[in-house]
Design a protein around this nucleic acid. Structure first.
Lengths: 234, 234
DNA sequence: ATTATAAACGGACATCTGTCCACTTGTCAA
DNA sequence: TTGACAAGTGGACAGATGTCCGTTTATAAT
């Protein structure tokens, strides 16, 4: 067997690992540019995959080859912004390792909230697609490309869980179900939940942040003394 | 103007208030029966509105006349179960008015969790439809019947908010944003959130209940003394 | 250059939700 | 009874998502 150039790239899986065609890469850029433009002009929800394909001058099949669904495309559009967000947060968390974990959690929480809020429209589409994928009630769904399990959610979970674990270890927090609590916190910052709370219930982002902080960081219980007081009053 | 019989029914809006036709009522029953059967046999997600219409021997337009969407139909299917649930919970809350509000909240929380869990499939469809309604990103949607804003969500919110308010008033809880906290609690019991946590993250219902109780009732903060201790230890 | 081959392509298709609208039928007043 | 009319009906249709598959084309080995 002759020299396989793909090996040089560190890909040691299959022989003759064909890399992405140049024209395909060009298409990808065009799709992203066109989608960004259409989304900006008409809103994410009002733009169909068909419209994107037409505007990009490609077939719908080609579009779906690249992105299994609209959420996938949105995720790619968000990629740069998301990377910046995680990088900065990661940097903060390492350099602030000295301050109490719950204070770090507070910062992480507020920053995440803002990130989600800024990227609301795209993120909403991402999670909407994920939900549809999750259904799978009827016949199994086919997808040409395996849905690359973006580490997004899991990354966030790990960050929160680590901070909670540290807080418990330091005795700044009573022992608790760290994994579930992290999930709970994440679900409270789910784009769809957040949008509902903002547009249907009318909560400002600041109010939401304060509410979350109060529940998950300050703690909702009063100090033991006040409970005692109320009981003796009766 | 002659005597208007509709006035006798307490409906003082329009004259000649025409009531639902008998045959229409029969259709309604048949739709519900057929849908229940199909859902049971193939799963809620796998049954289309078209299939329901065909199985019920009516046109799709007729089906959509009665129910603006699948979620609406599911809500009607759930109606009896839901009524029983709210009635029982209401009864408990009145008769248990003597015990501390936070204990009542605990009971309400666990019962709600179980109700949602039992009705998962239908409720999921209900909220999925609500989400689609909420989007409205593009052109406004038309619906033949006004989407009767089921009091479901709001009822739950009021119940939780009342219990929290009472707890604060009695000094058993530090003052907090009652309205937002109630929403937060509800969002944690959202069917889609719950399903994700159970099937994707693998949490049991008991674990979820315990986690919720710990955050929203026990409180996540340790008593002040343990914080002090950890600080002096360093 | 030639050629084999897998990647890429594109648009017809299948399916689902929800709407429209011309037609039918039950109901009520006269 | 009868006739006016709004409620009810059904199926074609519009618009979206996502799939299939016959065809084209970039790439790499020869």
């Amino acid at each position: 067997m002759v020299h396989d150039p793909s090996v040089a790239d560190g890909e040691a899986t299959a022989p003759h690992e064909r890399r992405e065609r140049r024209d395909a890469a060009a298409h990808r850029q065009r799709i992203l540019a066109v989608a960004r433009d259409l989304f900006a002009r008409h809103g994410v929800g009002a733009v169909t995959m068909h419209a994107i394909a037409v505007a990009a001058g490609i077939g719908q099949g080609t579009l779906y080859r690249r992105y299994t669904n609209k959420g996938d495309l949105c995720r790619d559009l968000l990629h740069e912004h998301y990377e910046r967000f995680t990088t900065e947060l990661r940097a903060y968390l390492t350099e602030a390792a000295a301050i109490p974990p719950l204070e770090r959690l507070d910062v992480a929480l507020v920053r995440t909230l803002h990130f989600v809020n800024e990227s609301m429209a795209l993120l909403e589409t991402v999670v909407a697609s994920q939900m549809r994928e999750m259904q799978c009630d009827g016949p199994p769904r086919f997808t040409r490309m395996p849905p690359r399990h973006e580490s997004g959610q899991m990354w966030g979970h790990a960050v929160i869980a680590d901070l909670l674990t540290e807080a418990v270890a330091r005795g700044e927090l009573a022992p608790l179900d760290v994994a579930y609590t992290a999930d709970l916190l994440l679900s409270a910052m789910n784009p769809m939940v957040l949008r509902y709370q903002q547009s249907e219930r009318g909560y400002s982002l600041e109010r939401i942040a304060a509410g979350l902080r109060h529940i998950f960081i300050t703690g909702i219980q009063p100090v033991a003394s006040s409970v005692q007081r109320s009981k003796t009053e009766e």
